[in-house]
Amino acid sequence: MSGFVLVIRRDLHLAFRQGFESLMVVAFFVIAVLLFPLGVGPEPNILARILPGVIWVAALLASMLSLERLFQTDYEDGSLELLALQPVALEVMVMAKVTAHWMTTGLPLIVAAPLLAVLMNMPADGLWALMAALVIGTPSLSLIGAIGAALILGSRRGGILLSLLVLPLYIPVLIFGASAVDAVLGGFSAKPQLLILSGLLVAALPLCPWAGAAALRQSME
């Protein structure tokens, strides 16, 4: 367990030292969402209608942007092999890296989302559904993304390849995340969607670190 905490602390420390990368992710997220009123037009009804989807798509892209570097720097400077030599299982290490990734990207997105929702005239009752969906959904994004980030280590054209691998796997989270908010705005309960999102998270929690660790092992052979 202490190895787990150590990796998280190390990654958080690095993230803060390396020029506030999470701030840049949030900035990307906010700008991407704010492009839509400018592109679609400032009609409040239309904005309220498309907002859940827009916020989720922007969250997906923002989360993916920072993925490429999840293992890349460790892979290049050799600290990944040091981590693999630790007595702690590599799966736990992956889990720690994912947790750190979520704390530096997912969490800031959740904090920034209500502000955007207000800017875009979202009705108040949709807000809690959006927050709940983001809280349950963004960890899944970091977990699924970790597999892709591990698979592209040492490849040519890593970044664009990563989006091709990860975005199709993000689709279920996008669908149920956005439809949870839609349901509440349409006067229904968001419970089924939130349950499915929780189910996705519960399935991803053991599977993604396992697959990610397998991908890391073959990258170091």
Partner: peptide, 16 residues
């Protein structure tokens, strides 16, 4: 096809 070493590509894509 993204790796210079075809063995690496085969393994990574198998996991995917």
């Amino acid at each position: 096809n993204a790796f210079d070493d075809p063995g690496r590509g085969a393994k990574a894509s198998s996991i995917l």
